[in-house]
Write a protein that binds this DNA or RNA. Sequence first.
DNA 1: CCCATAAGTCATCGAACGCTGACTTGCCCG
DNA 2: CGGGCAAGTCAGCGTTCGATGACTTATGGG
Lengths: 196, 196
Amino acid sequence: MPKRDREATRARLLEAARLRFAREGYDATSVRDIAGDAGVDATLIFRYFGSKKRLFDEVTADLPAGLPDGLPDGPEEELVARMLRAVVFHDWTRYGGEHPLVAMLRSSAHDDARQRMRQEVCDTYVDALRDLAEGDGPELRAELLSAWLVGIGILRSVVATPALAGASADDLAPHVEAVASALLGRPMRGTPSSEG
Amino acid sequence: MPKRDREATRARLLEAARLRFAREGYDATSVRDIAGDAGVDATLIFRYFGSKKRLFDEVTADLPAGLPDGLPDGPEEELVARMLRAVVFHDWTRYGGEHPLVAMLRSSAHDDARQRMRQEVCDTYVDALRDLAEGDGPELRAELLSAWLVGIGILRSVVATPALAGASADDLAPHVEAVASALLGRPMRGTPSSEG
DNA sequence: CCCATAAGTCATCGAACGCTGACTTGCCCG
DNA sequence: CGGGCAAGTCAGCGTTCGATGACTTATGGG
């Protein structure tokens, strides 16, 4: 492994940018901050990415493709419970401790960020939930459920509402069950059966 | 009315700041932008408010106290429906077309903004909903319902999810009824009776 | 060993930022 | 009319921003 490793440096910059953009948003993050975190010179950002904007694009382009592992696996009636765990209790340390979608809200003044968020929400959550909805307007039902998941993520990690911030996944389970069943029009389970 | 009206100028600055901060967030807004919108000199901001930060504080301090009129009025079982209308379908033109809470999320990198959001959410939404929740953990139920309202507001106005963005209040009514009833453990109505 | 190439550094640019103090303009009261 | 005071203007402070180009240093093939 050479001391001067272009790819390694690029990766360190990407990782540092990911964290900064997530924690503080696009505008509040400076290229010097990112380079400082990565332990390299700020100029390399322009060498490797062209501009701050393009670095942001590259960071937000490869979101974790929603929830990488195990989201579609398991019984349908536990999908929402798995989603909630993935949204709220997954280890998002690479994104400042918050779900990437929640973090990206900080940069939502930029239209690109909005588009990426919409695409991410629709492709990852709404698409998966729509197939579960019974009755009229499965799209709207799926979006309303997605809104709940997003809202929980925000109230937990950003607003830090007292009860939600201190709640465990098991505390939420019965409510997940109730709401998901009510919205999807079919019985749902609040706890993945892998638990206890 | 004198041509040089301190109070009027101050008010114009506050109004312009409200819109800018809401639309673009704290960091992306410059005092020159605000002053330009208000049609006055930028230095007046420091004359009248001391600093950009204090102007922001003043703008966010007098949020519309949640939902100014008619929120507590009306039957209890329609409270959530009224809240949703207030959150989502109220005329928020003074805040860039979005709910102040959603707008403030853009500045959520600053701890003050987070505190204000928490206070606003707890005082306006959770407090009112907690009294309606039956069964164990009314606080958590109230916060989960608040999370839903916030999430809907975000998916509608920021992420612009297709079905939700095009939905009317009446489209949401049955789902409001189902979710609110499920979460609060008591029957709820989705449409204010003032309608139709 | 030498040198072309690529990785990383340095000094600095022009623009924009928040903010300050000295200045000018207009209004009211005697 | 005229002085005093408040409202509003102006030039510029020091800093930081994103971005550029010339420079130095390390690496690896001949």
